[in-house]
């Protein structure tokens, strides 16, 4: 390397810019966005729901919990919140257990993408629900209570 400080607009800066552009072209050729991913992102427009209330992820054990010594397969604990309503979800190898608070019955769909629809789950009057299918990949829950539709933020199981 030479000792040039690379003044803005200087010749060194210009050569840097050329190299950056060369890298950009290399990335476009050698590591483009896979076409099926662009397609998935295009289809995600269907997930833009105006009538549903968004429940934001407020706790994720993967990020927020201290690891417990000796426990390597602790279940993933998630909490979503939409105003006064919270949804607690525990994801294990065997499936999913959840509770809606304040307790209330609901119909719950586990979404896996713009097109996927699985058989809905039912939350009992105490707001509890279970599924024996563990979610994999991106997933979200759509909950229909008596009063409204709530959708949890997408995340990766």
């Amino acid at each position: 390397m030479n000792g040039d400080d690379g003044m803005p607009g200087g010749p060194e800066e210009f050569v840097d810019g050329l190299l950056e552009e060369e890298l950009r072209q290399a990335a476009a050729v050698l590591d483009p966005v896979p076409a099926e991913l662009v397609q998935a992102a295009l289809e995600a427009f269907a997930l833009h729901e105006l009538d549903a209330r968004l429940a934001e992820l407020t706790f994720d054990s993967l990020v927020d919990a201290l690891p417990i010594r000796g426990v390597t397969d602790a279940p993933r604990m998630l909490t979503f919140r939409a105003g006064e309503t919270t949804v607690d979800v525990e994801v294990t190898e065997d499936g999913l257990i959840g509770q809606l608070l304040p307790p209330q019955p609901a119909r719950i769909e586990v979404l896996g993408g713009p097109q996927t629809a699985r058989a809905p789950l039912t939350a009992d009057p105490l707001g509890r629900f279970t599924s024996t299918t563990p979610p994999s990949g991106p997933f979200a829950l759509r909950l229909r209570t008596g009063a409204e539709v709530i959708v949890t933020e997408w995340l990766r199981a």
Binding site: A46, L47, R156
Partner: peptide, 10 residues
């Protein structure tokens, strides 16, 4: 990648 776009749509 997909999760990011799904969430962006939301």
């Amino acid at each position: 990648f997909q999760t990011t776009w799904f969430r962006f749509a939301q």
